[in-house]
Design a protein around this nucleic acid. Sequence first.
DNA 1: CGACATAGTGAAGGTGCATCACGATGAGCG
DNA 2: CGCTCATCGTGATGCACCTTCACTATGTCG
Lengths: 163, 163
Amino acid sequence: MSDSPRKHTEALGRILELVVVLSDDMTTSLAAQGLTDARAHLLWELHQRGPSTQRVLADALRVSPRNITGLVDALVATGFVTREPHPTDRRATLVSFTEHGAAVTAAMERDQHEFARILFADMPDDRFACLMEGLDDVLARLRAHGVSVETARTSPDPGSEAG
Amino acid sequence: MSDSPRKHTEALGRILELVVVLSDDMTTSLAAQGLTDARAHLLWELHQRGPSTQRVLADALRVSPRNITGLVDALVATGFVTREPHPTDRRATLVSFTEHGAAVTAAMERDQHEFARILFADMPDDRFACLMEGLDDVLARLRAHGVSVETARTSPDPGSEAG
DNA sequence: CGACATAGTGAAGGTGCATCACGATGAGCG
DNA sequence: CGCTCATCGTGATGCACCTTCACTATGTCG
């Protein structure tokens, strides 16, 4: 019983290691596409919602509208999205994918699936199920503990060199 | 069999959600202590290694020496650490905790243990063991896939309001 | 002593983020 | 219609993190 704390801390360490590793891999593979985390996140939301106003994106990414201006500026400059006038509201602008942006985002999605396959494909079914239950459990405890779990949907990519 | 891809993607989604939630919680509780992620990370390394030169910290955090200068500047200004001359190498400076810095870091460590306890304390032993094996498995696959897993030790805190 | 490596920092620049102020536009109401 | 008020996007400013390059002060080796 007195050894539990150590085991628990070790477990948390394992999870945090996963956090670091995945974040790092994500950032790296994104950079290879000429993207940063924040810009990719924007692309990801745009992918989920279709052409959106900057206001909508600001709410989705939970950042200030001003910041969206900057991110969109950069994505326009690098050819991932375009800014177009909103058809009915002349105050707003609609952000849409360029062909390139759509292609890269689609590739990101494919990479994510591929990455998931690599991680779990040859894992025994029972272990997989068990891992899932454990993760759900942890997530539930997190929520129960009052941690703010409304941090938007799943993040974009982590494709490594899978693509 | 054809439903596997969906399950796998969902599993990855669960993990990524965990990533986001934990990172967010970590950042928040750190901010409450007057710290940022980067500065807390430095404090954490200092805690593991004892008084260190900036060079050592730069290698530990895997950032440029120039960046360490900035982080240490900030931590000195906010009273977490001090810069002292290296006893034998007059080029180098030794970064050490102030009393306050040591106290906050110790509290971070306590919070981490407490947090681990909250997450895993009343989890059935078999499920816990199972989760651990699953995580190890994923980490191993990550490494096998060529993802760079030398991203330093476990990160600092995530204490939420546990402290 | 001279050549070379190393520790830390100034300068300059890119990115992500925030707040405040402001112009342009939309929308409700008298 | 015209006034008021809310909303969209952006300029200005500022902070934090991170990088590379240049440079000084030292240490080290031959």
